[in-house]
């Protein structure tokens, strides 16, 4: 009779634990893994992946009706929206300051502070704050957000290769976590972590956003980059041994498969079923590849992925 000897990898690396929240706010810790996602037979997963729900500082102007209807009037106010997200099971709120974009309202520090304040007072969950993605405006609104959330350890993003000093500096001075964003490239990802570390951001205060595409739109890149980062980290590379954050929801809801209610082939099926599956599959795939915080959008997909994480953790 064959005796199957299960091969067990002896990993030497541990993912840094990164704490969000505190200062009266609920604390959430991510990272700490000593094994590949959910393979607890050869290491531990002290902190299961967390779900952040996306909340905007203004009513979304490009969302399809199906997604808007799923949230109802809550999307008109970031505080109300965050509260509803918390009720739907969010572990973290991801506030996107989109109105600060030069083409989306060009609001400034005062409006950013007001939005952060609203979310902070509406819920006791930890916060991720993402700027509009334009260097000058990011620096302005993230600095304001940092002040508004001082002492409550939020994550601020994005730090990018061309623009990381200001955000990194406010993270250091206000004790927040910096999100290092790179475009689907493991080497650039590691390099940015090193640059942030060099200017004094502690490694337990960095989250990596190595980027991903949605299912059908480059998810294979995000999937493999997550896997490669995690393998490098468990192999002992400290500069990749950081928790990963992926924006699965917003990637999915840019795509036709989620957005289109009509004018699509019959083989695409029902829009709600399709879009919820699309976001659920995208989110659970990046989690299976190493994501620690997945940022999501549709309530039903959140529910599905939350249940999936529990099942993968054997609960």
């Amino acid at each position: 009779m064959p005796d199957v000897e299960i091969p067990v990898e002896k990993w030497t690396g541990t993912i840094k634990e990164v704490k969000l929240g505190g200062g009266g706010r609920k604390e959430v810790v991510v990272g700490g893994e000593t094994t590949l996602p959910f393979l607890t037979f050869e290491g531990s997963i002290p902190n299961p992946p967390k779900i952040a729900i996306e909340v905007h500082d203004k009513e979304p102007s490009t969302w399809p009706a199906l997604l808007l209807n799923a949230w109802g009037d809550a999307v008109k106010d970031p505080g109300t929206w965050a509260k509803k997200a918390a009720e739907l099971g969010a572990d973290i709120i991801c506030l996107k300051l989109l109105s600060a974009h030069p083409e989306g309202g060009n609001t400034g520090a005062a409006e950013a502070k007001a939005a952060v304040d609203k979310v902070l007072s509406a819920v006791d969950l930890p916060l991720v704050v993402i700027g509009p993605g334009v260097a000058e405006k990011d620096n302005e609104v993230l600095t304001a957000s940092s002040e508004a959330a001082r002492g409550q350890r939020v994550a601020l993003g994005n730090c990018e290769e061309k623009n990381y000093r200001t955000v990194a500096a406010v993270c250091i001075s206000d004790g927040h976590v910096a999100i290092a964003k790179t475009p689907l490239d493991i080497n650039l990802c590691k390099q940015l972590n090193i640059m942030l570390s060099d200017i004094g951001v502690p490694l337990d205060s960095i989250l990596m956003d190595p980027d991903t595409g949605a299912l059908g739109y480059g998810i294979e890149y995000g999937y493999s980059i997550n896997e490669r980062l995690r393998l490098a980290a468990l192999g002992g590379d400290n500069m990749t041994a950081l928790p990963i954050i992926n924006h699965a929801g917003s990637e999915v809801w840019r795509q036709k498969e989620a957005r289109a209610s009509e004018g699509v082939p019959e083989a695409w099926g029902d829009q709600e079923e399709r879009s919820v599956i699309w976001e659920s599959v995208t989110a659970s795939s990046v989690i299976n590849a190493g994501c620690d915080i997945v940022v999501m959008t549709h309530p039903k997909a959140v529910e599905r992925v939350k249940a999936t994480i529990n099942k993968l953790m054997g609960k």
Partner: peptide, 20 residues
Amino acid sequence: FTPALALALITMRLNIYTDP
């Protein structure tokens, strides 16, 4: 089996089995 589920799985398979 539903069309939406089939579309998602066919797409997932196409993506994962793409030669990097």
